Lab assay of single mutants.
Amino acid sequence: MASDGVVVEIGKVTGSVGTTVEIPVYFRGVPSKGIANCDFVFRYDPNVLEIIGIDPGDIIVDPNPTKSFDTAIYPDRKIIVFLFAEDSGTGAYAITKDGVFAKIRATVKSSAPGYITFDEVGGFADNDLVEQKVSFIDGGVNVGNATPTKGATPTNTATPTK
């Protein structure tokens, strides 16, 4: 695992066909100046998982989280898009600690492993708008004895992609 920078880890949970599971997305290594904004994309298989919603985690402190935390689910493109932009203008609602960034709610549709993997990152910046190093650890849903650990090695991303 990367020793510096922010680590975004997609949790690994267990479920069975027809059940709804909650998959946490963790941030670790949050910089001392916090995270003022970030955007990134995960990939998944809508034939295996139906993403039914995404909720902000406990490290989102904006009293009205829909102003700073936004997501979009595109089953036709097989992606989930995340956007966080601190909304106070003063840094008061920045992410300042490690913990759960988001909770992905999904219904298991198939007995195949439900991988959720890193696809791309736009950027991560602290309260001074300084770009942060970030790496990703894939996860998803274990169905029966299947284990979604494909790509469990962190993917280092030093520069934003478009």
Rank of each mutant, 00 (worst) to 15 (best):
P46R: 08
D138V: 06
P160T: 13
A158Y: 13
I59K: 14
A106N: 05
D119H: 03
P46D: 03
V134H: 02
G99S: 14
P46G: 03
S3G: 15
L83V: 01
I104P: 06
D138Y: 08
D126H: 01
S110F: 07
Y115W: 14
A158P: 11
P63M: 12
G114K: 09
G99K: 12
G99V: 10
F136A: 13
I23P: 08
V48L: 07
E9R: 08
F124L: 02
V25F: 06
Y115N: 06
I95N: 09
G11I: 05
G53C: 12
F27R: 00
G114A: 08
T20H: 06
K33Y: 01
I95S: 12
F118H: 03
D138I: 05
I51Y: 13
I23K: 07
G89R: 01
S135G: 07
R28F: 11
I116W: 02
T153N: 09
V7W: 14
T66I: 13
P46H: 09
S68K: 04
E120Q: 03
T159R: 09
N47D: 11
I104G: 06
T90E: 02
V48T: 04
I80P: 00
V143G: 10
V41G: 00
N47Q: 04
T117D: 07
G151F: 13
V108G: 13
P65H: 15
G123H: 00
G144R: 12
T159H: 13
D119R: 02
D62M: 15
T66Q: 09
P113T: 03
T155P: 10
G11C: 13
D4M: 03
F84R: 02
T90N: 06
T19C: 12
A94I: 03
Y44R: 02
V61I: 08
D98P: 08
I79S: 01
Y44K: 01
Q132Y: 01
A94S: 05
F69Q: 02
P113D: 12
P154K: 12
I51F: 08
T149N: 13
V8E: 06
E22W: 15
V130I: 10
L49R: 03
T71N: 03
E9Q: 10
F69C: 02
F84C: 02
F118C: 07
V81N: 00
V141W: 10
D58T: 08
N64D: 06
F84P: 00
K33P: 04
D58W: 11
V17P: 08
L49M: 02
G15R: 10
A72I: 00
I54L: 04
E22K: 06
P113C: 09
D87L: 15
Y26V: 04
S110H: 12
T96M: 04
I54A: 03
T71V: 02
I54Y: 02
A102S: 14
I10N: 12
R77A: 06
V8Y: 00
P75N: 05
F84G: 00
T149E: 11
V81L: 01
D39M: 00
N37M: 01
I23V: 05
E86Q: 01
S111C: 14
T153Y: 06
V48G: 04
V81C: 01
A146K: 12
V6G: 07
G114V: 13
Y26F: 06
D76C: 01
V8T: 14
P63T: 13
I60D: 07
T161S: 10
V100A: 11
G53H: 11
G151Y: 13
P31V: 15
V100F: 13
P65W: 15
P24T: 03
A85K: 02
D70E: 03
S111D: 09
A112H: 11
D70F: 15
D76G: 01
F101T: 08
Y74A: 00
F82N: 03
P24C: 06
T107A: 09
T161K: 12
G139K: 05
V100D: 10
V6P: 06
I104W: 14
F118I: 02
D126C: 01
V25C: 02
C38Y: 01
G114I: 05
K150E: 11
V48D: 06
E86S: 01
F69H: 06
G18F: 04
V130W: 09
V130L: 07
G34S: 05
V17L: 07
P63A: 14
N37C: 15
D138A: 11
D58A: 06
P24V: 03
L83G: 01
R28C: 15
A158V: 10
R28G: 07
F40H: 08
R105H: 13
P160W: 05
D55Q: 06
D87F: 14
A106H: 09
Y74I: 00
G144W: 08
F27I: 04
G139I: 02
V21W: 04
G151D: 09
K97G: 14
T157E: 13
G139E: 05
I73H: 09
A146V: 13
G34L: 06
T117F: 05
E9D: 06
I52F: 07
G151Q: 13
T157S: 11
F42S: 07
I23R: 05
F27N: 15
I95V: 04
S16W: 01
K103V: 08
G18K: 07
I52M: 11
G151L: 10
D39H: 00
A152H: 11
K12D: 12
Q132N: 04
G11T: 08
V100C: 07
V41N: 00
F124A: 00
G18L: 08
G144K: 12
K133E: 05
T96K: 07
V134M: 02
E22Q: 11
F82Y: 15
K103R: 10
T14N: 07
G139A: 12
D45K: 13
G34N: 06
D4Y: 07
S3Y: 07
I80Y: 10
A72T: 00
D62A: 15
V108H: 11
D76T: 05
L49F: 15
D4F: 14
G15P: 09
G140N: 14
T157Y: 12
T147L: 13
N64I: 05
E9S: 07
S3W: 09
F101G: 04
F40L: 02
E22Y: 06
T159V: 11
F40W: 15
I51V: 06
P75C: 04
V13C: 04
I10W: 01
I10G: 05
E50V: 08
F84Q: 03
V25L: 10
K12E: 06
K67A: 11
D70C: 14
G15A: 08
G29P: 12
F101Q: 11
T153M: 06
S68A: 14
E86V: 00
A152P: 12
T19S: 10
V41D: 01
T66H: 14
T157C: 14
I116D: 01
G139V: 03
S32R: 09
T149H: 13
G29Y: 08
F124C: 02
I51Q: 09
T159Y: 14
V48H: 04
G140L: 12
V108F: 11
